[in-house]
Simulated scan of single mutants.
Amino acid sequence: MASQLKAPTELQWDDRLSANEREAVEEWNACIARLNEARAVEINIAGPFLRSRIAWKLATYQHALLHRVVALADGVAVNWNGRSVLGAMLCARALMETIAVFSFVERSAAALYEREDLGGLDAIGQNGTFATRDEALLKEFPESKATNILTYVKRFDEEVLPGFGEHYDRLSERCHPNTSGHYFMFATLNRNEGRINYSDDAAPQRSSGLILAALAVTPFVESLHPRMSDLVMKIADLQHRVAPLKDDGRSDSIE
């Protein structure tokens, strides 16, 4: 049960946000609390997973992504509450990336299920779970090369939520050690006196707007996750019907 896991930190409404943003913060905290409860603590090879190794792979990948979503939401809140604006932005951007990947997995699995493409479904679970950029590992497992995250962001922008990529780019400018990520984030120029003043956050309103806009995508996971769960069960039935497992756990057609 998810109650055995660390509860995610709630993001605090404070003086960096306007009064009309309090409700948005409360809704986001409630969303993360529900996603936290949806996380699996363990997934056993039993029931539908006993007859479908593909469904088991996809379910374990799905919940790993869900755990990452909740962990990154916790990271946003911890950094925000501690007034570490850069830390909050880094977690918010990674949260956007994870949601884009999660959405791609669900949409791709749905399309492959409709075509009854068991090989493709198996590849999503296998390669997604073990995706890597480690050159040493790729020499042995070249099929596990991780897709560039910008590919997922672009597809999510084009196929699901227009404007997603544009905001991701704005947030990336602040997350990178570019001028928006160092000088404009921490420094303020007094032109009359020729003096630079540094602070923890030189533009709190701008920073909070960027962070909240990134968090606004999170509720999408609340509809995505149950769709994926339903799809995994359908895939289990599909494999059992089309290519039932042998006694040794191997499928007649999926090696």
Rank of each mutant, 00 (worst) to 15 (best):
A2Y: 01
W13H: 12
R22Y: 03
E26G: 06
W28H: 13
N36F: 02
I43M: 02
L50W: 03
R51I: 13
R51W: 01
I54L: 03
K57C: 00
Q62E: 05
H63A: 00
L65H: 08
L65R: 11
A71D: 07
G82V: 12
R83D: 10
R83I: 09
R83A: 13
V85H: 10
A92K: 04
R93G: 07
I99E: 01
S103A: 06
E106S: 13
A109E: 02
E114H: 11
E114I: 09
D117Q: 03
Q126L: 00
F130W: 13
D134H: 08
L137V: 02
P142F: 04
P142N: 01
V153G: 00
R155Q: 08
V160M: 01
L161F: 08
R170E: 12
C175S: 06
P177C: 00
H182T: 11
Y183M: 12
F184V: 15
A187S: 07
R191A: 15
I196S: 02
Q205A: 14
Q205E: 14
S208T: 14
I211W: 07
A213Y: 09
A213S: 15
A214G: 06
M228D: 07
M228Q: 13
S229G: 15
D230C: 10
V232E: 04
K234P: 03
Q239Y: 03
P244R: 13
K246Q: 14
G249N: 08
S253Y: 11
